[in-house]
Structures are given as C-alpha cells and as structure tokens.
C-alpha cells in the first residue's frame, strides 16, 4: 500500500480551495516575473520561489484531500526545485560568471503582451477540461497551462542559454502543477521518473554550458546558430 499513509490529513481544512487558488495566482505572478526579469541571479531565485509555492500548494492539496502520496511529490519538489537545482544553477552562473543582464530577443512589454494573450488562450482552452475534473483544484488547471505556456514563451524569447534552461524547468513546474490540479498528481513512479529526468537534464546542460563557453567564449546561443549555418 501507500508508504506515506501515516502522514497527516485534514479533510476539513478551511479555505483550502481558496488557498490553492492563491498559490496558483502566485505561480502565475512568478511566471510573469520571470518573463520580465533581466538579471540571471534574480531569475534563478524566482525559479526557486516558484518551486516553493508549488511545494506549498501540493502540500495543501495533500493535507486537505488526504491524497497522502502527494506529500511525496511535495517533498521531491522541495528537495529538487527549491534547493538542489537553484543551487546548481547558482554555482553554474558563478563558475561561468554570467551574472550580467539577460538579453532578450524582443522587448519586455511586447513579451508580456504576448504572455497576456497566452493566458487568455490557456484559460479558455482549460475551461472544458476543468469541467470534467472533479478535484477541488480544478479551477487552477487554466493557470497551470498558462504557466507552461509562459515558460515556453520565455525559452523562445531568451537568447542566453541559462535563462532557457530556467524556462525549461519552470515549464516542468507548470506541468507538475497541472497534474496536481487535474488529477491530484501523477502516479509516484512517473513523478520520480520526471524528477530524475529533470535532474539528468540539468547535469547534461551543465556540461553543455561549459562546452559551449570553451568553444565560443559566450553562452549566447546565437553563436550556435551561426555554427550550424557555417556547416
């Protein structure tokens, strides 16, 4: 059976739905903050914060619905996305000394405007899904979807490699959140697998960064594009 069944549950937690909604709103706020952020270090901190909010909301869901396996995913989120990955990223940034402002391919207000459009689309796309879902968190599916899309947008609009990776991992945050809100999380095995994937991905990226920088003296991915053109 579930190894985490001993953990506490509190089915009648007041305002649970509202608290989760608040967490969802903050996740969205953070997704926008990341989209608008120019500095890499702040970007990583925001990413860690988003992970923390995700962890909190998962914990609230676990507490209020008694889905105790969610405690597990909350713990994974905490360890991986709040502590480990930001730490690796900070180290990377420090070692690569890329603390300067992030260059964006579009100016920030335009990106934000596109982001608003994406939010509207995500909210409307999610409407039929959330009518099906029976979870107390169903209203937040739209937000989770919006977070995924915004992270995608961030990957598109950034020209440096580190912010792209942050975007990639933030997208994963959104996916986790979507899973929690739609079906109270994926089966534990899959969550563990995904978490491992992200970690491995991070390591691969880390190695990759050093390689790019040795090769081009910069982390700007436009150099890679030029390289492919030359070949």
């Amino acid at each position: 059976m579930n190894p985490l069944a001993w953990l506490p549950t509190l089915p009648g937690l007041p305002f649970a739905g509202q608290l989760i909604n608040l967490c969802a709103a903050i996740m969205l706020l953070l997704a926008f903050a990341m989209l608008a952020q120019r500095r890499i270090v702040t970007l990583i901190n925001l990413f860690a914060l988003q992970g923390a909010v995700l962890c909190l909301s998962t914990a609230i869901v676990a507490l209020s619905t008694g889905q105790s396996h969610l405690w597990g995913s909350a713990l994974i989120t905490l360890l991986l996305k709040v502590i480990l990955l930001p730490w690796i990223l900070h180290r990377l940034v420090h070692k690569l000394s890329v603390k300067w402002d992030v260059e964006t391919l579009f100016n920030i207000p335009t990106t934000m405007l596109v982001g608003i459009g994406l939010v509207i689309i995500a909210f409307n796309v999610a409407q039929p899904i959330s009518e099906f879902a029976g979870t107390i968190t169903r209203a937040t599916i739209g937000i989770a979807l919006a977070c995924v899309m915004l992270a995608f947008l961030m990957m598109i609009t950034r020209s440096k490699a580190v912010p792209q990776v942050v975007g990639f991992m933030s997208m994963e945050n959104g996916l986790f959140f979507a899973a929690t809100s739609a079906t109270y999380g994926m089966p534990m095995v899959i969550e563990l697998g995904v978490a491992l994937d992200v970690l491995v991905g991070m390591v691969v990226f880390g190695v990759f960064f050093f390689q790019i920088r040795e090769k081009f003296d910069s982390l700007d991915i436009r150099h890679l594009e030029e390289k492919t053109k030359q070949e």
């Binding site: 909604n21 709103a25 969205l28 706020l29 207000p109 608003i116 209203a139 739209g142 937000i143």
Partner: peptide, 18 residues
C-alpha cells in the same frame, strides 16, 4: 507597462478563479 499587465492579469485571474 508591467504594472498595467499585472492589473489586466488580476481581472483575468478573477474571471477564472473567482
């Protein structure tokens, strides 16, 4: 502009969640 867009988001979030 960020403030403006955040305020717009506030309305959207209200429509979705509340």
């Amino acid at each position: 502009g960020t403030a403006f867009l955040l305020a717009v988001l506030a309305i959207l979030v209200h429509l979705l969640l509340e």
